[in-house]
Write a protein that binds this DNA or RNA. Structure first.
Lengths: 334, 334
DNA sequence: CCGCTAGGTACGCTTTCTTCA
DNA sequence: GTGAAGAAAGCGTACCTAGCG
């Protein structure tokens, strides 16, 4: 920094002013400083700047590595954090690296707030963490006043799915359940409430899960059902589960959507590929990420309204109709 | 830190010694300090520790968010960095956040070395970066003495695939090419050299790519080929491409492996699912990650042998035979 | 020699102050 | 009033030295 100051013929304080982008330097000087920095290949040391200032302006994020939808969320988080003048520090969760460990490193980095993507921590753990610094849980509903929540209206999402299938004439509609995964309870509730809305509908809940593997297993169970009692439509916990289901159903000779209509959840990139063309309930990654950053930024930047109990932002899902669903035909099963 | 010292009845220097895990404190004191820290919920500030010491003991990693195989690599990197007493700082690449930007933030964090996963930077950029600090490119071959490379032997991988198919009696074997992606050139070379090994083999190169989308497109082109000239086997750029190909081929009425055998590359988790059961060339994520960390650690920890030209580590791939390949039958096409 | 204290400097910045043109 | 210099304190550690029992 001193070298840059010397080269630009200014004081070190000026260099600091220029790099922080605050007022106090003329455009000419600003350009001179930046030129000197470029020539010396200098860039401010983020460790030192965070130490020096009272604020670190850093948000921590835990995410599951290799999780497609988390990738979409990260993209949105990067964009909105940048716009709000925050930096992101990432901490990955892997089969051998727990979410707790990931959070530990974020705390040691002294980030000011934490975004948890699809957290699997207990409410007690979340509450303890939220007592320490602002926390927002994305995709996972959480109780407690201290913790911000940003999620899709899962219940409404499943209602959309069921309504869509009912509108196509289906009455026996199965749910591929998500078990104890984040959001699964809400989706089950949405399914049940939509199904009970009309007495003509028959509920069938099959164990599903997060991945194609569980969708495939569910499809095998589905095929085992006699043609008479077999549902004519299925709404899955998520897209990957739906895709696994479709694969195995087709391998077993069922036509999709001819014999069974399938609806997913998330709208991951793959769902939109022409050869997949999965009808699904879209979660809006862009808005989820924006809301997560806003939740933390509002609290950190001292918005007195937000300072109290953090809001629970629930974003409306959207049904995306593609080619995995079709009207019920006379012969429901082959 | 001062509070912890006071609570444990020791000096600040002792607290530092305990948390750095260096010699100079008795076990009893060590326990007392840790207990005090636990009670006060104290943990050392990594920003400050890195500032204070001459070494940051930090490795930067760029990766593509949502990329399944990068997730596997990250897991391995976390494990081995930890073992080598380095911390990892992650910087994600997204459609709207370039690899250059990702590297910038890593440099500003003052990490001591950089791991690039599937870099798409030019050789000139890589060379410039490598002149600044130790760099290792994983999955992407790179020329230049300054830059470490850790990759799978892509050429050998495609030879394995072709040999496997030839051993099953196939002679018309197509390649779904990866274009300009990292490693594609090497795989193409492996394909060509293996095919030319035997005059009986007929080369067919179709444009493929990284995702199911491109595999699906290749399958459409494949189906268009007359049954006579249509290859009986396909080796794809990677698993996702292979999976897209299989999906569309089956939708078009071709049997896999009855009418066409398919080999992938990578061995992503999905390839091993029973309903997918893709024969593929496995890249060993665990060893790739280990080698990447070792490459940097050797150079950083002053191993005089490694200090010169960093090694190019090439890891042997392994053929994993599942159910997407079968012997050529009398009627090669339906 | 070990375990420890006490006090210092260093790290690379931020931030605030006063001063000057 | 605005742009800038220069000084000084501080951030939370690491690390060193001197010294004590």
């Amino acid at each position: 920094m001193e070298h840059v100051a010397a080269r630009a013929g200014v004081s070190r304080a000026l260099v600091s002013i220029v790099f922080r982008g605050v007022a106090g330097a003329s455009d000419a000087t600003r350009e001179r400083v930046l030129a000197a920095a470029r020539e010396l290949d200098y860039r401010p040391d983020t460790r030192a700047s965070r130490l020096g200032s009272s604020r670190t302006r850093t948000l921590g994020v835990t995410f599951s590595v290799g999780h497609a939808f988390h990738g979409d969320l990260l993209e949105s988080l990067y964009t909105h954090a940048d716009a709000a003048a925050y930096e992101l520090v990432l901490s990955g969760v892997t089969p051998s690296r727990s979410e707790e460990a990931a959070v530990e490193t974020l705390l040691a980095e002294r980030c000011e707030g934490i975004v948890l993507l699809g957290s699997s921590q207990s409410t007690a753990q979340l509450t303890r963490l939220a007592a320490r610094l602002p926390v927002v849980s994305v995709l996972r509903p959480a109780t407690g006043d201290e913790i911000g929540v940003v999620r899709t209206d899962d219940t409404a999402g499943l209602r959309l799915a069921v309504e869509h299938l009912r509108g196509l004439g289906h009455t026996r509609i199965a749910l591929l359940d998500g078990g104890r995964t984040a959001g699964a309870t809400e989706r089950r509730r949405g399914y049940r409430s939509a199904m009970r809305h009309s007495p003509a509908l028959t509920e069938v809940v099959l164990p599903g899960g997060l991945t194609e593997l569980e969708g495939a297993a569910a499809a095998r169970a589905f095929v085992e059902l006699g043609a008479d009692e077999r549902p004519t439509a299925v709404t899955a916990f998520n897209d990957r589960c739906a895709i696994g289901f479709v694969d195995v159903a087709r391998q077993a000779g069922l036509r999709v959507p001819g014999d069974v209509s399938v609806v997913g959840f998330d709208d991951i990139t793959e769902a939109g590929y022409p050869h997949v063309a999965l009808t699904t309930v879209r979660q809006d990654a862009a808005r989820l990420g924006a809301a997560a950053v806003r939740s933390l930024a509002d609290r950190l930047d001292g918005d007195p309204v937000a300072a109290g109990t953090p809001a629970h932002t629930v974003i409306a899902p959207e049904l995306v109709v593609r080619s995995s669903t079709a009207p019920l035909t006379g012969r429901a099963s082959s």
